[in-house]
Amino acid sequence: MTPVAAPPPVASAPVYRTPDQPTVYAALTQANVRVSTTFKGARIVLYGAVFNPDDNPADVVVVVRGPTQPVRLVRKVKVAGVWLNSRPVLFEGAPGYYMAASTRELGQIADFGTLRRLSIGVDHLKLEAPEEQQVVSRYGVPDVVVSRLAGDYLDWRNALIRLKQKAKLYDVDARGVSYVDRNHLFRAELLLPTDAPTGRYDVQVMLFKGGAKVSERDLTLRVKKVGFERSIYSFAHRSSWLYGLMSVAIAMLSGWVASRLFRRT
């Protein structure tokens, strides 16, 4: 990036008075992601500006949380030489998508307690887990609800995060936020894989100075299925029996059509 020798952009923005406090402004290039037939994942650019009255450096952290969902996990265990699945373990809630992007390593921006309190970074991600072990029955199947106090809680927690990271649903990027000019204008990118959950995503843009959060902007991103995709999905779920009947009819019909066509030729 070529450095631009221009006055701070915030000062030139007519809507805002020049603030006395360090302040962050941000916006998304796209507030709605539409999942259609050609959906191949999405790349959304977040851009923003920092007003920083003094010369002490400021850091920007962007945290995105997708809709919270329950998650079930199984663990492969070896029984009599064969690898089997254990009984499912249930996390009552985990973000369907999580991203933490920052200008530097999170550990250099704020201390452990601050990051934990604000739930920044996968190590500090809040997963809903009760204090005591319990068993819930879902559809007649007993699930062990993972307990925060159980001895292997960390194994399960790490596995959940690792699997989500592998699916590109969780991401931590210490260079994800980059300044475009000298510490004023910044940008970050959100990458949504094709299996990103639909729903409301909360985007927090935070400004850190001297290890403390000094300013924050909250944005919302919506991911929804549209058009043909949406019609099929809701048809399959709302009138599932009719949908099944239609699927079979299409199959039978195309089998018949093909055999007609081939008889002629």
Partner: peptide, 12 residues
């Protein structure tokens, strides 16, 4: 031996 010992289970 599976490379990843854990897996997501459906039906959450």
């Amino acid at each position: 031996r599976p490379q990843e010992a854990f897996a997501f289970a459906p039906g959450a």
